[in-house]
Amino acid sequence: MAKVTLTVNGRKMSGDCEDRTLLVHFIREKLGLTGTHVGCDTSQCGACVVHLDGKSVKSCSILAVQASGSTLTTIEGLAGQGDMHPVQAAFKTHHGLQCGFCTPGVVMAAVDMINRHGGALDEETVRSELDGNICRCTGYHNIVKAILAANAEMSASRQAAE
């Protein structure tokens, strides 16, 4: 057994688990944050994407003990007090989801790509950056539209702040 301590969505949290416990199961079962999903057993689908020390990772392919000591952001940590994150709002506006199962991972991947590309996102880049997230409903078209719209809005508000 191991004691795993993480800063999760700004709060220090810890729990005991077996060394073999995957981070995604620790998040869902020990921390009770069930927004992060398990969509496959093969590390391919991306429904479990969270941000570990600010970078998107697949929480199904990391042991909780490997992540201990890190800062974690899950889908629950994106929204502010009562306000959706701009990426979440754009997914709603542009119908970027249907069943919604893959959406937490796709939104976390979208926030990561917007952070990294800092405004310089085009459709081709968004589609290639979505390589690690599988959606079986939407055909991706509205996901791409939503990410581009959120990116435009976030760069506009960054510029307004400067």
Binding site: K58, I62, A109, G132
Partner: peptide, 9 residues
């Protein structure tokens, strides 16, 4: 290599 999430690890 892989996808963005894999490349981060």
């Amino acid at each position: 290599i892989g996808d963005p999430h894999v490349r981060h690890m």
